[in-house]
């Protein structure tokens, strides 16, 4: 309907300009995809798709590259950080929407927003200088002494606690994504109609029962979308993990070992790569990361849209 107003020549001009500006986003996405494919074509030709993804090799001397170790690091840090972050984030959302007295709602909401605004490099530096020593001196030895003694679980805590490892990286990553998950969960909780909640209270339900049986089921889609969105964020986070992961290309069973994620490998090795195939393989990693996070974020968006539409 609004397009009918395009009678004036200036209007046509202005609408075209704005349209081009809006299309720039599409151009960026298509451009990134095209350029990454072009730059990695050397590596794609050489190693193929499945070979590259499943090969654990990362051997610059013999020029044999594979993504498996990087994907492993990315998967483990992402999974662990979500594991740590989700309960805390949902707890925060419950507190802010259902428990907090009004005068506290504001400050805590602001605090969470600020936590989200702190640049990731600050998290990384803080992790290296402050968290890593704490992890290696207190937390990791304590974990080894307790969980490390449990038969099967113990495998996860073998080795020497150094603080520069998968566990520390995951902890930092989880602190980083808590605010995202929390604020989306909060928004989802807020979508629950007050009438539904009130009728539950009227039936004599406790606050927790209202949360558990009314609010959470009602906002399931929204929370799920928030979690997947955080997953997408965690996948692509670079600086926070670059400081504390150790950049070691290996697949390890212990969380106290150094590893590498796609992002950390890129940050560490991109300017150092001396052969064309090496550089091309790094572009290939970037391509994989882009596709992975794009798909993840798209799924998250679909869930969030559905959650919105339902209410």
């Amino acid at each position: 309907m609004p397009l009918l107003f395009k009678k004036n020549p200036v209007d046509i001009f202005f609408s075209v300009i704005t349209a081009l500006a809006a299309l720039s986003v599409v151009v960026f996405i298509a451009g990134i995809l095209y350029i990454l494919i072009r730059e990695s074509s050397l590596s794609i030709e050489r190693f193929g798709v499945f070979n590259f993804i499943f090969s654990t090799d990362w051997d610059p001397v013999r020029e044999s590259f594979g993504a498996a170790t990087n994907l492993f690091g990315t998967a483990v840090t992402t999974f662990l950080s979500l594991l740590f972050a989700i309960p805390v984030a949902v707890g925060i959302a419950i507190f802010v929407t259902e428990i907090a007295p009004n005068f506290l709602k504001g400050p805590i909401g602001v605090a969470i927003e600020l936590l989200a605004a702190i640049p990731s490099i600050i998290y990384g530096m803080w992790g290296l200088f402050t968290l890593a020593p704490i992890m290696s001196e207190y937390i990791e030895p304590a974990l080894q002494a307790s969980l490390g003694k449990v038969p099967v679980l113990g495998i996860l805590f073998e080795g020497t606690p150094m603080g520069i490892d998968l566990l520390t990286a995951s902890v930092i990553l989880s602190i980083m994504i808590i605010p995202f998950t929390a604020s989306i969960s909060r928004d989802a909780f807020n979508l629950t109609p007050a009438v539904v909640k009130e009728s539950a209270y009227a039936l004599g339900a406790t606050r927790w029962e209202v949360v558990k049986n009314v609010v959470i089921p009602y906002s399931r889609l929204g929370i799920f979308g928030g979690v997947v969105l955080s997953l997408g964020r965690a996948l692509g986070e670079t600086m926070a993990v670059a400081f504390v992961l150790g950049n070691n290309h290996q697949i390890t069973s212990s969380l106290l070992d150094a590893a590498a994620t796609i992002t950390v490998t890129l940050a560490n090795e991109f300017t150092e790569a001396d052969t064309d195939l090496y550089l091309s393989s790094l572009f290939y990693l970037a391509l994989i990361l882009f596709v992975l996070s794009f798909i993840t974020l798209a799924i998250a968006k679909i869930f969030l849209l559905r959650a919105e539409r339902r209410s």
Binding site: V61, I164, N247, N268, D274
Partner: peptide
């Protein structure tokens, strides 16, 4: 073999001289 980065048979990797020194 020899090179700027190699596939190490054993060990843990530190980033930079300072990473190795730290470990």
């Amino acid at each position: 073999g020899a090179g700027k980065a190699v596939k190490w048979p054993v060990g843990i990797g530190g980033k930079g001289n300072e990473g190795v020194a730290n470990y």
